[in-house]
Write a protein that binds this DNA or RNA. Structure first.
Lengths: 181, 181
DNA sequence: GCGTGACATGTAAGAATTTACATGTCAAAA
DNA sequence: TTTTGACATGTAAATTCTTACATGTCACGC
């Protein structure tokens, strides 16, 4: 369902677009909260057209098909946004890794957290650049802002976690606990 | 791979546990960053045992099987944590919804954001309670802390986004733009 | 004219995830 | 004593997601 809603939202926000355009939009604006490749997007658009949520508005060069959202699609998007109660959970591989780091020796954990920190610093810089380019105009602004705030929050968390773990260094690590065989 | 690593991490942090225990741990500590149900966990543990990463250390009442991480499992966990560069992307249904809200009339969008805000306020309260219970002891503390910070950041984002959208009310909404048919 | 890279769409296979089905045990309260 | 709820493990089916394969067009520079 999320993919469908995301595509309807992009069509609504950006106007008629091809699957290729939508894949790019996913990459550049929705990437901070949802991901989908073209191999997922193309078949989904076909199904959505069959369900009357979008129509092929025009066909252009290189087989390009321009989809537009229909009134039915627009109604479904609005209904979902107003009525659905989305799950508040998040899926983040990097956060998962960060949480498991404390099972390492404290020194290793700190080193790994510092590498993670650097990557988030880069991410923040990248997002800030994008933010400046966008100005305060585009639809994607909210997404960008969200991504930026969360990346900064992660850096703060990493810093505090490093500090906490560092205090434990010398007080005995978790190195060989809980291992069988 | 993430599921495997998460299970190894939990076994390492909590000591020998059954699939049932691990499912509970997932729910209570890792839930903020990764989700897995028992129907995913049980078969994965069987595969991991076949690969020598865990062993069935004991069998108890009600068919309970207690798994323990092996040295090989421990080595693989450590290797992954130190060497892997996880993707920094996140998948969040609620954030996706939040991003698409601006395609609604500003008034609808603000109403929906306010409902979202309430849910996050509840979440923060819940996490704060859990935090107090845990004290500063447990492994899951980092996860909890992370979840709490991100939930608070989301609330701030919602507030600022509401403010931004509210300023636009009366300046013309996005109500019937970009709809075909 | 030829190559390269962005444009553009698709399918296939496999992995991961979710939801539902299915079964059985144990402890404690009513 | 019976029933309820937590404990405990699985499988099946459907969906979603990722990775790889496969194909062809157009514009631009060399």
């Amino acid at each position: 369902m999320s993919l469908r809603i995301a595509l309807l939202g992009l069509l609504r926000a950006s106007g008629p677009s091809s699957g290729y355009d939508l894949a790019k939009s996913f990459e550049s604006t929705l990437n901070y909260v949802w991901q989908a490749g073209h191999s997922q997007i193309y078949p989904e658009l076909v199904k959505m057209a069959a369900d009357g949520l979008v129509t092929v508005e025009a066909e252009g060069a290189r087989g390009r098909k321009v989809y537009a959202i229909t009134q039915e699609g627009s109604a479904q998007l609005r209904g979902w946004l107003l009525e659905q109660t989305p799950s508040l959970t998040v899926r983040s591989e990097s956060a998962l890794q960060a949480f498991l780091l404390p099972v390492l020796d404290p020194a290793d954990a700190v080193a790994a957290l510092e590498r993670l920190r650097e990557r988030y610093v880069e991410k923040v810089a990248m997002l800030e650049t994008l933010c400046d380019q966008h100005g305060s105009k585009a639809f994607g602004r909210y997404a960008l802002d969200h991504g930026l705030r969360h990346a900064r929050t992660t850096i703060e968390w990493v810093d505090d976690t490093i500090a906490t773990i560092s205090r434990d260094i010398g007080h005995g690590g978790s190195c060989d606990e809980n291992v069988a065989d």
